[in-house]
């Protein structure tokens, strides 16, 4: 991964982005944060509806129709802005314990959210009993907590040294 990061750093695209770094990095990071705000707000609304704590005047289907697409499109935005950040600062992201842990959480979190948001509208009847079950409710809470962890790990990319010897970044010094 070190050599990939080095190669990526040397590409002309990475160089072009770095020339614009002073505004590009904070700008893209801010858009990335707006993206996660959209995701968190939408996931919260869906989770509260599943738990019956809010939006009970709506069916679960109405709630997922309202917020599901926002989650999916914002996730796509996160992918794009995330890739721009990696290209701009390959070593900061790719040689980083918090980053890779975050990616594991992203993989699990988006899979869980994706299965539900794509599967439920398609097979509403088949999911009907399931969405009322306690297991499903706990899965929704787990997914939401996974996204909370994703935010924490995302922020910790900037502070990877707190992981001590787990952080490849500390070994550079």
């Amino acid at each position: 991964m070190n050599s990939f990061a080095q190669w990526l750093t040397k590409t002309s695209l990475s160089h072009t982005f770095r020339v614009q770094e002073s505004w590009l990095v904070p700008g893209v990071q801010s858009i990335h944060i707006i993206g996660i705000a959209v995701i968190m707000g939408s996931l919260l609304m869906i989770a509260l509806r599943v738990l019956g704590w809010a939006g009970t005047d709506q069916t679960l289907r109405q709630t997922t129709d309202r917020f599901g697409p926002w989650v999916m499109w914002a996730l796509a935005l996160q992918l794009v802005t995330g890739i721009v950040m990696i290209i701009t600062e390959p070593a900061r992201e790719l040689v980083n314990f918090s980053f890779w842990t975050k990616m594991v959480f992203v993989a699990i979190g988006t899979t869980l959210a994706g299965i539900f948001l794509i599967g439920f509208p398609k097979h509403e009847q088949r999911w009907e009993a399931l969405v009322k079950s306690r297991t499903f409710k706990s899965m929704v809470i787990v997914t939401f907590v996974l996204f909370l962890c994703i935010i924490v790990l995302g922020r910790l990319i900037a502070y990877d040294h707190i992981w001590g010897s787990w952080s490849p970044a500390t070994q550079e010094y």
Binding site: M40, L44, M45, I151, Y159, H161
Partner: peptide, 23 residues
């Protein structure tokens, strides 16, 4: 070494909820 990053992370979680729900 960890207090500031953790406080900042909680700050980020909270304002994403603020902005996401206000929207």
């Amino acid at each position: 070494i960890w207090m500031f990053p953790i406080i900042e992370s909680i700050h980020v979680i909270c304002f994403t909820i603020v902005v996401g729900t206000i929207a």
